[in-house]
Design a binder for these strands. Sequence first.
DNA 1: ACAACCATGAAACAAGAGTTCCAGACGTCA
DNA 2: TGACGTCTGGAACTCTTGTTTCATGGTTGT
Lengths: 282, 282
Amino acid sequence: MASRLILRIQERSSRLTSSERKIAQVLLQNQSLVETHTATELAARAGVSKATTARFFRSLGYADFEEVRLQAREERNRREPYADLESMSQPATFGRTISDHLELELRNLTRTFEELRSDLLPDIAQILETAPRIWLVGFGDEQGVARLGQLLFARLRHGVHELSGQGQSWANELSMTGPRDALILLTFEPRPKLLRSLLAHARTTRMRIITLTDHAYAAQAERFSDVVLPCHVASYGTLPTHATMLSVLRLIAVAYLGRNPEAVGQRITTLAAIDEELDLFE
Amino acid sequence: MASRLILRIQERSSRLTSSERKIAQVLLQNQSLVETHTATELAARAGVSKATTARFFRSLGYADFEEVRLQAREERNRREPYADLESMSQPATFGRTISDHLELELRNLTRTFEELRSDLLPDIAQILETAPRIWLVGFGDEQGVARLGQLLFARLRHGVHELSGQGQSWANELSMTGPRDALILLTFEPRPKLLRSLLAHARTTRMRIITLTDHAYAAQAERFSDVVLPCHVASYGTLPTHATMLSVLRLIAVAYLGRNPEAVGQRITTLAAIDEELDLFE
DNA sequence: ACAACCATGAAACAAGAGTTCCAGACGTCA
DNA sequence: TGACGTCTGGAACTCTTGTTTCATGGTTGT
């Protein structure tokens, strides 16, 4: 870190007095110490007096301790970016169910986004930007999507919560909501009765409501929502598909990101730093 | 860096005054500044008075500027000496528009399913049919997908659980697993260290492991998995996309459904009856 | 339009940093 | 032993830092 300083110390290492050697040892042991700590603190660490420390740096040729610190800082100001790549592989065989399934998903996605009013995205981004908090709520399968959405949006900004009614104590969570908060409602059929009261509460709290739902419910949703994003969810019968809803959710996130690239970038690197600090990942 | 400080700033970023914003900008731009520079210098860089700077830090909840610096230092000492690259590697391109996003999702889906070995589906269905229990596990964002998968597969058969390590008591959940149980592992980067031990446990328990992951990890996953389904997850940089993984999950469900139509149909009507009895839905 | 409030910088102030001075400790050499 | 030189820490001192006070200008709300 402070290479020049280190070099100077090594250069004189044979001629150092015992106290000076103590100081040198502290510095060599942790080379960035000189950037972050005061001379007084260094003295304390080395177990010598401030006076000796001052003399030490002067004897190395610096006019000042200030000069030492400035030099160290200057050295630090060097960086370099880096890039990454993407991979490819080979195609393989088809299967009846696979192509059916794929076709279904593709059609749902395509229709959904084709019909999506792109002018809504800025509005949504605006709501999400100005919201003190963001709440995601979903019932049944959509609760899973809500969870995923919470994780996704938490990357973008602080104050993103899942409204899950943990332990049936909705009141507990609802008490934390406030005006201008954004409520992202994810709902397909069937809908619990609870939803009505929940929405009534949200309205009186003056939350902004963004609803992702199927076309059948869209008209109804318009009545209580600030924005409605209808999703195509055709699904040959029994098993619902949530890929489209999830994708719409991501689109919103991307729109938000597009409008706040620097802030989000900051947040993401910060979160990464914390992860690293916690050392949970490989 | 000074993650905690940065987080606090971001948290309050919407409520900052103009001068405070200047200071915030300086700090966000170079996150290590606070370790190496004095508050006076920061004030000068931001073009505001020392007084405002002092107030700024206090308003963030710190008692002192000293406290700020100490915290930053402490964080630094926790971290690897090399970790302070702190590169401001801003993502160059975003999928900003709807069509970009759609194209991305379509391509991911298409490639994934084109490359999918359709002969694996019967194997998977077989595993799921014969498994005493089915466990889904995912970390980070994938935990949300796991949740969704649990809800999805619970429609198909009994004994579908999410392995979530609720309250850190993995042992509690793992104690319920047994031989021939199916473990559906959902994993993109980054992967927690815990995963290794978890897999080791699963192996010795003789669970069947079905892994949904990205291509980079697929080869590695082959070593411990009975089946690996690689997903394309290209995502212009910052925000991951889980639509594809979710879709693959649904495909598995569909495959299962295709082989056991009557049993599943039976189950679904039963569940509907229970819902009706509980009278939770509209 | 007025009052109340807030944000802000200049200046006064207190605290702490770094330097210098000085006296004592230690070792060396005659 | 005594004289000398060097190394060292304590204390005085100076300079800088960070905080607080106060006056000013701008905004909000009624």
